[in-house]
Amino acid sequence: HPFEPEERNSISFHDGTRPFPSNQLPIIDLEENPNPLYDPKEEDLEYKRLRRLLGRDFDRDYMSTVRPLEHVLHRNGTLDFKIKKGRPKGRRPLFIKYFGQRVYTGETQKPIRLKLKREDRKKVQKYLWSYTHCPVFHTWKDLGVRFWPRWIREGQCFRGKSCSIPPGMYCQPSDSMRITLLRWYCRGPEVGTNCSWIKVQYPVLTECACSCS
């Protein structure tokens, strides 16, 4: 472990002396001190050493030490809409499974029903599944020289149009994972002293869902 936080004591700080974090996404960009003395130097950036330091946490799908080709080709990102058998890949949502139930119209009238052939009902279900699906939009982002690898693949929710019938709901962050990176951390009381690489966990959005904000 590259860093032992000796200053940190282990009591819980949920006594109102520290602010409370949330798991809300998307994350806002970290504000960095512009002083270049806080940057790692050439010799601190030796690939082999850092690669060994990160070990099994190195995840090629979500991080890159150089600007990825995908970022060169699709600077604004790519929509990750995985299709299988004409509908989104993944588990069928319950509201799709139960689509077509009777609509109650009061005590004195018959409920309204959807009379369709099994095949056609399946078609409508697949279509609604696709219509309400919230694919993740992937973009590569440069975190700067104080992170290693400095390029990470972030997720965003596509909010161009409403995903619900009737319109009103939009794709919102619904799940995330944490990737582990290295961070150049200077603990010294003076600028840019006592620096080392420490492991940090960075949240990455992995799923979106159609909901009210």
């Binding site: 949920h14 006594d15 109102g16 002396t17 520290r18 602010p19 409370f20």
Partner: peptide, 19 residues
């Protein structure tokens, strides 16, 4: 006043401002 416990329903900004 310091420390602002959970019971008074303080915002993060209020915790910072108290300090």
């Amino acid at each position: 006043s310091f420390p602002i416990g959970n019971h008074v329903n303080a915002t993060n900004h209020a915790i910072v401002q108290t300090l």
